[in-house]
Simulated scan of single mutants.
Amino acid sequence: MPLSVILAATAFVAVSCSGSATDADSSPKTATAKVSTPPVHASVDYQLGGAYTPPKGVSVVSRDHTASPAPGVYNICYVNAFQAQPDAEGDWDADLLLRDRSGKVVMDKDWGEAMLDIGTPAKRARIAEKVDDWIDACADKGFDAVEPDNYDSYTRAPHGLLNAADAEAFQTLLARHAHARHLAIAQKNTLELAKDRKRVGLDFAVVEECGQYNECGSYVDAFGDHVIVVEYTEKGMKRACAGWGDRISIVRRDLDVTPAGHDGYVRETCDRY
């Protein structure tokens, strides 16, 4: 049974339609959905590199949508919504891959991921249909929330191919579907769009390296204490803990988010700093 069903404290989230989407983006509006956001200032673990038994005291865990939720904690389900997984562009229709002016697929070079073309309402709807299937699987497994990654992919696209309105229109589709399945939905990074989070329908934030880049306060301004921070460096962790360790959830992981028991595994909390 999802933790959201048994938690005593739940939040009612009104789902709004996006002002940046066109009429062709419209999908059936969900009624006010009953969702549970993660507990604030909680001990959190980020397990995208592989699932393992959460350390003692952890009450919030994020795992890939292919994994199962951890028993007895709040579970966030990760989906790569705006880009294809590495070497998985073949899983998508060819016309849904973003292409430059010469017809070449646009890649996120840092991670080797093909970008998805969310530039038209019709393509957004088709991409959302596939991502919604993953969201459905998250809900069916018993996850409590979904974390769609690469909201900021439009910032890495060649000039003129994608823009912020495209990203918000697509994210709005995902938020409606998540809420219809009684899942909370996170904004992943993308500080420049945090001001629109209520209109898009986003409930909390999962933020990488806001301490490293002095951005944690701006996320708190937008989301209150409903912010989960993942740092990858000692410098960033110290800064995040010093500024916000008494209010929001903060964890340091290794960059590869290696499972516990494997070489390279790092997990630290603000108690150390």
Rank of each mutant, 00 (worst) to 15 (best):
P2W: 00
V5D: 14
F12A: 11
T22S: 13
A24E: 14
S27R: 13
K29A: 15
T32H: 09
P38I: 15
P38D: 11
A42N: 05
D45E: 12
D45C: 14
Q47R: 00
Q47F: 00
G49W: 07
P54W: 03
P55G: 01
P55L: 06
G57K: 13
H65Y: 15
S68W: 10
P69R: 08
P71T: 15
N75R: 01
N80T: 15
Q83V: 03
P86D: 08
D87Y: 09
G90A: 06
W92V: 02
G103P: 03
K104R: 14
K109Y: 09
E113C: 02
E113N: 00
M115P: 07
I118L: 03
G119Y: 09
T120C: 06
P121L: 05
D132W: 01
A137L: 14
A137P: 06
C138M: 07
K141N: 05
G142T: 09
E147W: 03
P148D: 01
N150P: 12
N150D: 11
D152E: 12
D152A: 06
Y154N: 04
R156N: 12
R156M: 07
P158A: 00
H159N: 13
L162R: 05
D166R: 03
A175F: 00
A178E: 03
H179Y: 01
H182E: 14
Q187F: 01
K195R: 12
D196W: 12
V200N: 04
G201N: 04
L202I: 12
G211Q: 12
Y219A: 05
Y232L: 11
C241G: 04
A242G: 14
G243P: 09
G243K: 05
G245C: 00
D256G: 11
D256A: 15
H262Q: 14
G264W: 11
V266N: 05
V266A: 01
R267M: 10
C270E: 07
